[in-house]
């Protein structure tokens, strides 16, 4: 790598880097700062000339318990979905990384990852078709049970959880698989030759060694789920009111942008706190 020795190198460096980072500045970092500023305003400057500063938007969050309750509901949803993704996804990553070899593994891995890169809205919509009352799922399950099924899963919290697990499961599988695959086979062989059982190998070797990958996956699931609003709207119906849907409402229905900005910023603070707590683990996962 070249050290910056002369002025022309430095000019080239700035010329190469500044377009991308100026773009990120204008489109991401300035907006996030502007949101913090707006969250302390009474009105939008473009709407009324006599706007002022206030702590009222944050006070509303504290004085009206609904917001706190909904934030907690979203955090709980995040924890539920994350736990489900770990319990379903980690064994899957284990199978992919440790028992399947060669081309079959590559193909299966690609198959698991592919839906994750496809349109998330459309995938949630497909669950709406599957779960709707008297729909495909009930017909399918009736093949196995002798009586008429009335599951009525659509517009329930379960439906929201199913849809979100479907959306984010590949994250956990991806990060766990990468961590598990990097474990040296010789270590496992050594443990086995010294008489360690499968359970001991899993508990004492595989799980601790792949923990950074698993945790990275968990964070990558938890953060977007806490901020989700489209999935609860489509699959949750009446019970689908979460912190994210309240923020959405402030911007597209109620038009109280300063309050929306304050609520968004509180969510951002929660997310940043979680990322900060997880960053030592995430850094380990990176190396």
């Amino acid at each position: 790598m070249a050290e910056l020795t002369n002025a022309s190198d430095r000019r080239r460096l700035v010329a190469l880097l500044s377009p991308a980072y100026l773009w990120l500045l204008v489109a991401v970092f300035l907006p996030l700062s502007a949101m913090l500023f707006f969250s302390f305003l009474t009105d939008l400057p473009q709407d009324t000339p006599d706007w002022g500063f206030t702590l009222g938007n944050y006070a509303r969050f504290l004085s009206n318990p609904t917001y706190g309750t909904l934030l907690w509901k979203s955090v709980t949803l995040g924890l539920t979905v994350t736990l489900a993704c770990i319990l379903i996804g980690y064994p899957c990553a284990l199978v992919l990384a440790r028992t399947i070899k060669g081309r079959a593994r590559e193909t299966l891995f690609l198959l698991v990852i592919l839906p994750f890169w496809s349109n998330s809205l459309v995938r949630i919509f497909s669950w709406a078709i599957v779960l709707r009352g008297n729909g495909v799922l009930e017909r399918f399950l009736e093949l196995f049970v002798p009586f008429d099924l009335r599951l009525n899963l659509m517009f329930t919290t379960t439906a929201v959880v199913i849809g979100l697990v479907h959306s984010y499961l590949p994250y956990v599988i991806l990060t766990s698989y990468l961590a598990l695959q990097a474990i040296d086979d010789d270590i496992i062989e050594a443990a086995r030759s010294m008489g360690a059982s499968r359970l001991t190998i899993l508990r004492r070797l595989l799980l601790p060694l792949s923990m950074p990958g698993l945790m990275a996956g968990a964070v990558l699931v938890f953060v977007p789920v806490v901020g989700s609003f489209m999935e609860p709207r489509i699959l949750g119906g009446r019970v689908g009111t979460y912190y994210g849907t309240v923020i959405e409402d402030q911007f597209v229905a109620v038009y109280n942008w300063p309050l929306g900005a304050a609520l968004s910023f509180i969510l951002l603070a929660v997310v940043l706190l979680i990322l900060a707590l997880a960053s030592p683990i995430l850094r380990k996962a990176n190396t």
């Binding site: 880097l17 980072y21 990120l24 489109a27 991401v28 970092f29 300035l30 907006p31 996030l32 502007a34 949101m35 707006f38 939008l44 400057p45 473009q46 953060v223 977007p224 806490v226 901020g227 989700s228 609003f229 994210g244 923020i247 959405e248 911007f251 942008w257 929306g260 900005a261 968004s264 969510l267 951002l268 997310v271 990322l275």
Partner: peptide, 26 residues
């Protein structure tokens, strides 16, 4: 600069999207 690449990916799009809306109107 490398760390600065993560906020657009890691921050929920709901937050980024609403922040952009506010700023772009501003």
């Amino acid at each position: 600069l490398q760390v600065l690449l993560f906020p657009p990916i890691a921050i929920p799009w709901l937050i980024t999207g609403t922040a952009m809306l506010i700023f772009f109107f501003f």
